[in-house]
Design a protein around this nucleic acid. Sequence first.
DNA 1: GATGAATGAGATTTCATTCAT
DNA 2: AATGAATGAAATCTCATTCAT
Lengths: 196, 196, 196, 196
Amino acid sequence: MKKKDLTHSQLIDAAFLLFAEHGIDKTSLAMIAKEVGISKPSIYYHFSSKEELIERIFDFVFSDYRFEHDFDLAEFNADNFREKLLAGGWAMLAVDKENQRVVLKVLNEFILSALRDEKYRERLIAMQQNYLDGFHRLLVKGAEWGVVPPVNLEAKAHMLALVFDNITSYLLLGLELKYQAIWQTAVDSIFIKEAN
Amino acid sequence: MKKKDLTHSQLIDAAFLLFAEHGIDKTSLAMIAKEVGISKPSIYYHFSSKEELIERIFDFVFSDYRFEHDFDLAEFNADNFREKLLAGGWAMLAVDKENQRVVLKVLNEFILSALRDEKYRERLIAMQQNYLDGFHRLLVKGAEWGVVPPVNLEAKAHMLALVFDNITSYLLLGLELKYQAIWQTAVDSIFIKEAN
Amino acid sequence: MKKKDLTHSQLIDAAFLLFAEHGIDKTSLAMIAKEVGISKPSIYYHFSSKEELIERIFDFVFSDYRFEHDFDLAEFNADNFREKLLAGGWAMLAVDKENQRVVLKVLNEFILSALRDEKYRERLIAMQQNYLDGFHRLLVKGAEWGVVPPVNLEAKAHMLALVFDNITSYLLLGLELKYQAIWQTAVDSIFIKEAN
Amino acid sequence: MKKKDLTHSQLIDAAFLLFAEHGIDKTSLAMIAKEVGISKPSIYYHFSSKEELIERIFDFVFSDYRFEHDFDLAEFNADNFREKLLAGGWAMLAVDKENQRVVLKVLNEFILSALRDEKYRERLIAMQQNYLDGFHRLLVKGAEWGVVPPVNLEAKAHMLALVFDNITSYLLLGLELKYQAIWQTAVDSIFIKEAN
DNA sequence: GATGAATGAGATTTCATTCAT
DNA sequence: AATGAATGAAATCTCATTCAT
C-alpha cells in the first residue's frame, strides 16, 4: 500500500472509532490527527474538509450493511426456508458484540444526521429500503415455493424488517431480552395460515 | 404563574424546539436565549449549566412517553381486546405529524446521548422497559380473558413492542409504508394458535 | 462614556492604526485585541465579524473626508475666490504629516478593497464624486460672480479635483515636489480667458 | 524556450492575473500552482519564496510602465507639440480597457506595498519620477522650440503628470468622466501666456 | 431576576514552506 | 525539473461560562 493510502485508511479507521466513542460533533480533527499521529492540517491533504471525511465514513459504514449479507436468497429453498430465516436473524446475535456496538453507534449517528441533511437521508432510506425489499423478495419466493401462505406478503415482510432492525437498536442500548425467541415468534407468524 | 416559572418554561419550550431542529450539540445557549428574548447569562439563573437544561428537556420529553398513554389497560376487556390493541397502534399514525416529528427527533437525540452517558441510558431503558412490560401485562390479561393463546406471551409482547417502537422511527425518516397493515399483521399474529 | 463605548472606540482606534501600519489583510484580530488589552473573542462582543469592524473603520475614515471640509463655499466670494481656492489646497500641505499619512494609508487600503468589493466601491465613488461636484459647484459660483471665465467649467473643475486628489497620493509616497506651485499652477489655469 | 523558462513565464503570467483579480495577499501559491497546472512545491524550483515571486511580478509590471512609451520625445517637434501631447494622453483612454484594468490593479497593489516596504518604495518613486521628469524634459524642449511659454515649467510639468496619473486611477474605479476634455484642459493650460 | 462585558478553550481551515524521492 | 506528503503557525470564529452590577 502506498503511504498516502495507508494514512488515508488510518484516518478512516481512527475517525470511525472516535465517532463511535464521542459522536461526530464531539470528535474534532485534532483528536483524529492525534490518534493517527499526524498533524491537524495533514488531514486536509487527504480530505478537503471534515464534512468530506464524514461522508467517507458514511460510505465505509454502509457498504457493510446490506440485506444480502444477512440473508442470501441463493441459499434459500423450500426445505430450509424457515431455518435459514431464523438463522439469518440469530446470526446477528452471535456476532462479536463489541465490534457490532461500534458499527451501530456510528450508524445511529448517521440516522440523526439524516434527519437534518438531505444528503444522508436519501442514502439511509435506500439502505432501509434494501432490507424492506429484501424481506419482501424472500417471502415472495417462499410463497412461490409454497412454504409461505401467499397473502399479505408485503406487510409480513415489512414487519419482519422492523423487528430485525429494532433488535439491533435494543441490543445497542444494552437491553437484555430474549431476542432469539422474539425473532422466532416473528418468523413463525409468517407461516401461519390466517384463520381469523 | 410567577415570572421565574414563566421564563423557565419558555426556556424549556425553546430549547426543546431548537434541539429538534438542530440537534443538541448544534444548539447553543445563545440561540436559546435569543429565541426566548433574554440574555445568554440569564439562562444560568434557571439552570446551572447547559447539561442541566438538557436533563430537564429529557424529563419533559419522557414524561409524555408512557405505555399507558397509548394503551390504557383499564379500557381493555375480552370483547374489545383486538380492536383496542389495533387502535392503540393506529392512533400514533393519526397524530399531528409535525408535532410528532419534533418529539421523535429530540427523543432520538437522547437515544444517542444514552449510548454514551450512563445518566441517560438508565432512564431511556426504563422507558423502553415500560413499553416492553406494558405489552406483556396486556397479553397476560388477554390470556386470562381467554382471547390470547397463553403461550410464548413474553416473546409475543416484546415483538409487538419492537414493531410499535420502530414504526415511529421509520415514520420519522419519512419512509412511506403501509403501517396500518404492518401493525395489524403484528397484532393478528398474537391471536394465532400455533399449529406448527 | 460607558464601558462598552470606551472599548468600542479603543477597538476602532487600534484597528485603524494597525490597518495603516500593516494593511487590512495583515492585521489580525489577535493584533487588535492585544493592542487594546482585551482577549481575542471579546472583539466579537463589539463587532460581529472582522468584516463589520472593517466597515466601521471605513465609516470612521470617510466621515472626515468631505469637500466641504477643505473648501467651504459659504466663505467664498468674488473678492477672495482665488485666494480661498489656493488656501484650501495649501491647507492640506500644512497639516500634521504623520496623522495625514495614517489616514491616507488606510484610505488607500479601501481604494484597493473598492476594486474588488461592490460594497466599498459605491461609497468610495460617492466620496470622489463629492469632490468632483464640489469643485464644479465652486467654479459655477465663480462664473456667476464673474471671476471665472464661464467656459469649460466641468472639465476645469474635474482637472482641479484630479490634481488635488493626486497631490495627497504623492505626498503619501514621500515624493518631495513643489506642491504649492503645482496647486497654484492648476488654480491659475482656471482663470485664464482661453485665447488659443 | 526551455521548459524551465516556459514554466517560469507561465508562473509570472498566472500570478499576475491572480494578483489583479484577488490582490496579492489573497492569492495563495496553491491558486497559482493550480492555474499553471503544476504542484505547489514546484513553484519553489523557480522562485525561492512567495516574496521573490512578487518581486518578479513587480519587475514585469513596471518594465512596461515608462514615460517614453506614452510620449516619445523623438517624435515631438514645434509643429506637432500640442497635438502629440494631447494624443499621448488620449491614447491611454483608447487602450483595451480590460487589459488596462488588470495592469492598473496590480500596480495599485504595489503602491500599497510601497507604503510599507522600502524595497518597493524606491522603485515606485523612480517610476513616478520618470513621468515627472519626462513631462519636464518635454516642456523644456517645448520652451526651446518656442511653443511653450518658458515660465514655471516644472510646476506645469508636474501638474500634467498628476493629472495624467490620476486619470488612470479614476478610470480604474469606473468613474465616468469626460477624460478627453479634462486632459485637453490640462494640456491647454500649459500654452497660456500668464496674464495675471 | 437579569444583564453587560468579557474570557479560556477549542473548533475548522488556510498558508507558505520543507524535504525525501 | 518536479512532486507527494506533511507541517508549524496562525487566521477567523463559536461556545459555555463567569462575575460585578
